[in-house]
Amino acid sequence: MSSYIKVGENIINTDFMYSKTHEWVAIKESPARIGISDYAQRNLHDLVYAELPKVGSQFKKGEVLCTLESIKAVAEVYAPVDCTVLEVNSALLDKPELINKDPYGEGWLVKVKIEGGTDSLMTPESYANFIREL
């Protein structure tokens, strides 16, 4: 069972590491899943379209990994680490709302091979402090 930290109404899954741009990485998994945090999905509410990368494509940390669209806005998801995409969550093509419903579970975006370090990522506790300050 996963455990969680709550900051206001936002939930932070303690199994994952986080970026300042609100992506999570399941660094204990291989391949590692990447998704967006509960905080991010609340701000993007009403997601209606997910544009996912091609399997095999490579990203440097900070490059645009996916594009998510809500009714009125376009949001970019950045690669939280250097990585190669091994699998995408094709369920999101028909049901992008899974990202809103279950951001740490069924709403995962991609599975990747992490190519470099993960030192820049925040622990769940530091991410909790980070969003407390926002």
Partner: peptide, 8 residues
Amino acid sequence: PLFYKSIS
């Protein structure tokens, strides 16, 4: 207000 619960 942009929305209350959800635009859709």
